[in-house]
Design a protein around this nucleic acid. Sequence first.
RNA 1: GGGCCUGUAGCUCAGGUGGCUAGAGCGCGCCCCUGAUAAGGGCGAGGUCGACUGUUCAAGUCAGUCCAGGCCCA
Length: 946
Amino acid sequence: MAKPLDLKSTINLPRTDFPMKAQLPQREPQQLAQWEAEKLYQRILESRAQAPLFVLHDGPPYPTGDIHLGTGLNKIMKDMVVKSKTMAGFRSPYIPGWDCHGLPIESKVEKQLGGKKDSVAPAEFRRMCREFAVKYIDQNRRDFKRLGVLGRWEKPYLTMDPEHEATIADAFLTFMEKGYVYKGLKPVYWCISDRTALAEAEVEYADHTSPSIYVRFKLAQDGPDANSIPAALKGKNVYGIIWTTTPWTIPASMALAFHPDFVYAAVETDSGDVYLVADQLRKSVAGACGYKESKPLATYKGSELEAAHLKFHHPFLDRLEPAVLADYVTLEQGTGIVHTAPGHGADDFRTGQKYGIGTYAPLDDDGRFVEGLPEYKGKTVFEANPLIVKLLESRGALIGQGKLQHSYPHCWRCHNPVIFRATEQWFINLEHDHLRRHALNEIRKVKWTPEWGEQRLSGMVAERPDWCISRQRFWGVPLIVMYCEQCGEQFKDFQALRNVIRWFEREGADAWFTHSAEELLPPGTKCKCGSARFRKEKDILDVWFESGSTSLAVLKDGMWPADVYLEGPDQYRGWFQSSLLVGIGTRDRAPYKQVVTHGWTLDAEGRPMSKSAGNGVLPSEICEKWGADLLRLWTTSQDYQADVRFSEPMMTQLAESYRKIRNTFRFALGNLANFDPARDAVADSELSEMDAWMLHRTGELVAKCRAWYDEFEFHRVFHALYDFFVVDLSAFYFDVLKDRLYTFAPRNIARRSAQTAIYRITSALVRLAAPILVFTSEEVWKHLPRAAGEPDSVHMALFPTAEDFTTGLDRRKLENWESLLAVREQALKKLEEARSAKVINSGLGAKLQMRASGKTLELLKNYASSLPQLLIVSQVTVEPANASAANGQVDDIEVAHADGKKCERCWNYSIHVGENADYPAICERCTAAIAEIEGSRDPAVESANR
RNA sequence: GGGCCUGUAGCUCAGGUGGCUAGAGCGCGCCCCUGAUAAGGGCGAGGUCGACUGUUCAAGUCAGUCCAGGCCCA
């Protein structure tokens, strides 16, 4: 008589309370709160107190309302570096920082004041700026933390902190003391109605009607270089023709610029004069000026004219202007010759520097000429325009005029047109003490990721002009420069000046604005001339000098230089360069050993993301919709060395990938219910061969992932892990394992072997995934049985090692399994054919009849008993074949319907179903399993298993 | 316009020093399962390797030109 039995109750189905649905947007904040309450970051550092250091120095973002996706990507990458280094056994602190000073906040405060900046004292103005910065920093900090980034958030570094401001000022003094700093001229945007310098960002372009004039400059026929004048021009009335829309710059004209490669024609006009213009523009110039030209006397390349040392007479001043070369000269309009006023144009200034021509800018703050001819002296530049045109006319130099409407820079505050004006600025001399050469040397010693970074930065450093470090602003660190009130000399007692640093340490840089020079200096300080009264410099430092100094302020206690800097590609021009120069100027070396750059953040069409373009997506929105782990998955899914893209379809796809990973973890956890590694794990020698082989494969994966983490190749880690989850585990190993896990007696050694492997594999994968999926990994970790001594947070754990996965399985057997995997692929195709032909439905309904020869036959015979489980079919027969198939292929596989009846318990077909009178519906294997289960039914074991 | 970089299936990624019919996963199509179930499994169709011209017995891989895009300058 058959025993009554609930078959399903004898099956070991997965059981876990690890939820299938992630609900990341809801759960992640809870996890964050828990980490914060547990002081996870501090505990990690404490647990690594004796470990070797690995320092990533955070490039400080500028505090703004919402963080941009690119900023999110950057922070996530930094977090992955820190977490992976921590798990590799390093002590890797992360001190986030903010770049607090500078124009954007200053502008906001100005707006708040309704443009009446002068209505408050500098100290009060600075207080308001500070308030703004604090507000934004708090907001940013929330966003960054939400991404799962662990670090010293409660005490970040701020460039506006007193101690930090002191370090910046000190670095400046070091530069000054070592002789790098000099005062020079540089043209800047200048608003003559507000009497102030404007930053690039403070000018807006609007249409403006300017005079448009053609002016002729007469070639000097005498002088020391007269011999080199080309023969065709000798002794003639030759004129260089220029075109300009700013007649008022003519008094400051110092040179005529030619393009080195353009062809210039010397054409004789109806008046008998010879005019020099770009050959291509000959006709248009003649048309605009209303003269007739005959055929050209000669043509010259611009470079020839410069080589001939041509000089031209200024139309109304006693000045000779040399022909110079400039590659910004264009043929789009004008004459191909550009009158060059180094005091009133950025391009002109550079050309002037190159040729050692003076920077002449005879204007006061109101834009009035302080010297020159009576016709325009004392007038503002805009008043002077028509006067100078008239003057040119009266001197016979004006050969054409009109009006031109064009886009012209205007002041954002008063909306009046602005001018370029040379002003006194402070510079760091790149040649002093071979600063440039030293920098280029240091660049070579740094490891660049990607490698082309070296070339890129070298190119920039080699070409860059001297560093202008002064700004006419308030919200920043002042240049510690003082002048004697009596003799006017710059005060250069650096020991005394460093007293200011002490003030800054106590009160911050505000001290500069609230105390007199005499208070800031040590009591009794005197100038060489004997005077004790000093005047403070008003300028503040370029914020790039500040951010360039952050490593000095942040990396204490043997942390300097940093192991790595990691930023976007815009920082070659910015932080990488400023940090390098400050590092060399103060400590004679680069502040970083390695520099990693990631790409720019683009939308689906490859356009850069920005709020103004309307294609920007905020990290906070992504966290709300998808979760931070999804954003982190996005970050790792792509190769960051190129630009990275963001689109909704990508996120949908990643969400699917995430779901797969999560479910696979969940399956593993479900099958580890009641599994206690300390009690139930099977020794290596007792492992089923397939399990040992899978452990081996896991070991290979571990080795690869660790190497990739080492090289910061996160996307390779992601793709390898993901493929392992999908292909090796979900589609293969776990699928094959179901039969053993579900139908074998719970404590059967073969089932324990499977669980041992699942446990070890899962424990490894969750740790490898932890730097990427910081929340999900923690969730898995908490559900995973933990060995004694393992930390309660996955982020405190160490990465697995490949050695953890050596089981002693010999090489030949490993290869056997690789071959069997190939056989499996072959069999699956045949099974699919049989399914379409309706021979079978499920694989378990099949019997495979294989024919093979040689080594393959031998292999299949040796593993005959494992084949049905490996292929998830009910029966497999192996017969010798006549022909021998190519490398490891089975010659033939035939699929037939399985023999016997379907076992109601394990769903395998067997001819033995019904043989056991007690359980007529089950097969011989299940009969044995039930006997094993019943044999072990003693209450003590039972309770231990529940 | 200049410097540097990027361009392999719909998407993301592999393809040392040139050498078999260019690979993977996802997505897609078709099918199976219902004991991972708002899961799981299988098979299949997708690529002129941005374009062109060279070097070579042989090029996704080397060289040149061009096109598209990015960062930074101008």
